Deep mutational scan, measured.
Amino acid sequence: MDCGICYAYQLDGTIPDQVCDNSQCGQPFHQICLYEWLRGLLTSRQSFNIIFGECPYCSKPITLKMS
């Protein structure tokens, strides 16, 4: 499936590997796309290497662990 942010399947050789945990959403994202999206939200917060925010599609909580 394509990334829900950039709408591409491959981005710099990677495929969407982050998925919204909401079973009714399940939208996939590239890690870098989701990172940039969450960084741009005023409501997002970060604790060590984990960013907490809202899914761009369903607005439910989503987390991103940076590797």
Rank of each mutant, 00 (worst) to 15 (best):
D2K: 13
D2A: 10
C3W: 01
G4D: 04
I5G: 03
C6R: 01
C6E: 01
C6M: 06
C6W: 01
Y7Q: 13
Y7G: 09
Y7H: 11
Y7M: 12
Y7F: 14
Y7D: 09
A8W: 04
A8E: 14
A8G: 14
A8L: 09
Y9G: 09
Y9V: 04
Q10N: 10
Q10F: 13
Q10D: 14
Q10W: 12
Q10Y: 11
Q10M: 12
Q10I: 12
L11W: 02
L11E: 03
L11R: 12
D12N: 03
D12M: 08
D12H: 03
D12R: 13
G13M: 02
G13Q: 07
G13C: 05
G13E: 06
G13K: 03
T14G: 06
T14C: 08
I15A: 12
I15Y: 13
I15Q: 05
I15K: 07
I15V: 09
P16G: 00
D17T: 10
D17M: 04
Q18D: 02
Q18L: 08
V19Q: 07
V19K: 12
C20V: 00
C20A: 01
C20R: 00
N22H: 03
S23W: 10
S23R: 11
S23E: 14
S23P: 10
S23L: 10
Q24C: 08
Q24V: 06
Q24W: 06
Q24K: 15
C25G: 02
C25M: 00
G26N: 06
G26E: 08
G26V: 05
G26W: 02
Q27I: 11
P28V: 10
P28T: 04
P28K: 13
F29S: 03
F29A: 02
F29T: 02
F29P: 01
F29E: 03
H30L: 07
H30S: 00
Q31W: 07
Q31V: 14
Q31I: 12
Q31S: 13
I32P: 01
I32V: 08
I32R: 14
I32D: 05
I32F: 13
I32A: 12
C33M: 01
C33F: 01
L34E: 01
L34C: 04
Y35Q: 07
Y35M: 06
E36N: 15
W37P: 00
L38Q: 08
L38S: 03
L38C: 04
L38G: 05
L38V: 07
R39G: 06
R39N: 15
R39K: 11
R39V: 04
R39S: 13
R39M: 08
L41Y: 01
L41A: 08
L42W: 10
L42A: 12
T43D: 05
T43S: 11
T43Y: 12
T43G: 12
S44M: 11
Q46T: 08
Q46P: 04
Q46D: 10
S47A: 10
S47V: 10
S47G: 14
S47F: 15
F48N: 15
F48S: 06
I50R: 14
I50H: 05
I50T: 10
I50M: 13
I50Q: 13
I50K: 11
G53W: 01
G53E: 01
G53Q: 02
G53S: 06
C55Y: 00
C55D: 02
C55G: 02
Y57Q: 11
Y57E: 12
S59C: 15
S59G: 12
S59N: 07
S59W: 13
P61M: 03
P61V: 03
I62S: 00
T63A: 09
T63K: 06
T63S: 05
T63C: 15
L64E: 06
L64C: 12
L64Q: 06
M66W: 12
S67H: 12
